[in-house]
Design a protein around this nucleic acid. Sequence first.
DNA 1: ATTGAGACCTGTCGGC
DNA 2: TGCCGACAGGTCTCAA
Length: 251
Amino acid sequence: MARRRIRAVIMRRDNLRYDFPPDFAQRLNGQSVRGVGRRAKYLLVELGSGDVLLMHLGMSGSFRVMRRGTLGKHDHVVFEMSTDAMVVFTDPRRFGFMTLLAPGERETHATLRALGPEPLARQFDAAALARELRRRKTSLKIALLDQRVVAGLGNIYVVEALYRARLSPKRRASTLVTRAGEPRPALATLVTAIQDVLKDAIRNQNRPGGDDRFLVYDREGRRCPRRGCTGTIARIVQGGRSTFYCPVCQT
DNA sequence: ATTGAGACCTGTCGGC
DNA sequence: TGCCGACAGGTCTCAA
């Protein structure tokens, strides 16, 4: 998509909850694509006009590029490119999100502005995490899911990271910080665990998901895979979402 | 201010 | 075989 031109945008249904401005398609038609980027789970496409196309895949969204072929019922938005390729946005559950930001709005957009550090960036370390968790009364699991604490972690990766760090998802977030606001040693372990989980996920992105894709996620009732641990993976609900963990080795 | 619950949406799966 | 409810996911909105 980068350095190409958008010839036309086709909206294939009118009841998407994507917050399209009324002139969405017109503002995109004929625009050159200056660049494609990402912040947390948001995709950002910079256009020649200075507008930014802001998108989120939700949980079931995806893009594909095709030159010919038929469109399916969940292909909601089609970007016809100058190269004759079609960039197709598919989103069966319509949890995705798509809008257009005028120049400057990227900096003022409330959600984007509130996002915490990228977990793989240098700014994300034990001290940064300590500042965020210090006054949190919620559980570690809920805190890590909060995109203002660290950006881009979803349910599965939070669950996997806590397992790797041997930390209980039920633990109160502020207990990883000293009274003085210093990170306790476990926080450095957690930072590394988060980064390792993400690096592994990126490395394995093209591999078909086997049964052993996750260590604890969706593995309720199975044995804890940690060497020497005799625990059984448990499932609890936190914030309305499933958490999987080993009650024996995660403390 | 912080936290929690509910809404949004639909494909899939287990139970009857 | 078919029906029905539960569930999964991320984020926003509203209420305590």
